[in-house]
């Protein structure tokens, strides 16, 4: 277990919904609802956090939600209990998942791989627990290739890294480096906020 990362998100947990639960969720609701509408089979949701995304899950799904922060999961629990389907919440580091190979049909992430300390290793771990041909569907913010946005994101990362995310990662390339085949990339905002669909 990466205790430094756990402590960082435990500290962020009490204020997380206040900062992120209104504007960002309202802004991204249509995109997330559409992305999650593709849920099928046994689903792993990585970094479920305080469970803000659960409201966008289609009903009747079978989801395992994991997070490195037990304090985040404590906030997520009432949302998981209110969900019209099955959500099992588990305290877990993506790098040390005890699931066997091919346990899940799909993996979903939402603003996660800006924060996983070793993104390629984390993505490789996700590929391991997916069935062959299983889908990885991501809603992520990434770095930009366009000036001046790339400059801004590099500058923001200097500060943001201390409290959580890195703003300048090439997540699409990281997905490829982890051995996935990228099937679709959709730009939601500039070339920064994106949905990514890949196959194991």
């Amino acid at each position: 277990m990466d205790l430094a990362t756990q402590r960082k998100w435990d500290r962020a947990a009490p204020g997380f919904d206040f900062m992120n639960g209104r504007g960002a969720e309202a802004r991204w609701a249509p995109v997330k609802r559409h992305l999650f509408s593709h849920m099928r089979g046994k689903v792993l949701f990585l970094a479920v956090g305080t469970g803000l995304d659960i409201q966008f899950f289609p009903p009747g799904q079978n989801v395992v939600g994991i997070d490195i922060s037990p304090r985040m999961l404590a906030f997520a629990r009432p949302r998981a209990e209110a969900y019209e389907g099955q959500i099992e919440l588990r305290h877990m580091d993506v790098h040390d998942m005890p699931f066997g190979p091919g346990t899940f049909d799909q993996v979903y992430t939402s603003c996660t791989f800006c924060s996983v300390p070793d993104p390629v290793k984390g993505l490789s771990a996700l590929r391991r627990v997916l069935v062959p041909g299983g889908e990885l569907r991501m809603f992520e913010h990434t770095g930009s290739r366009i000036f001046p946005f790339n400059l801004m994101l590099h500058l923001m990362t200097v500060v943001s890294r201390a409290v959580g995310p890195e703003m300048n990662r090439d997540t699409v390339e990281n997905v490829r480096r982890a051995g996935f085949t990228v099937r679709a990339v959709d730009n939601v905002y500039l070339d920064v906020v994106r949905t990514i669909t890949a196959v194991a």
Partner: peptide, 10 residues
């Protein structure tokens, strides 16, 4: 808080 993350910060 009111307008979201990257779309306002950037």
């Amino acid at each position: 808080i009111f307008f979201g993350a990257m779309e306002v910060m950037l």
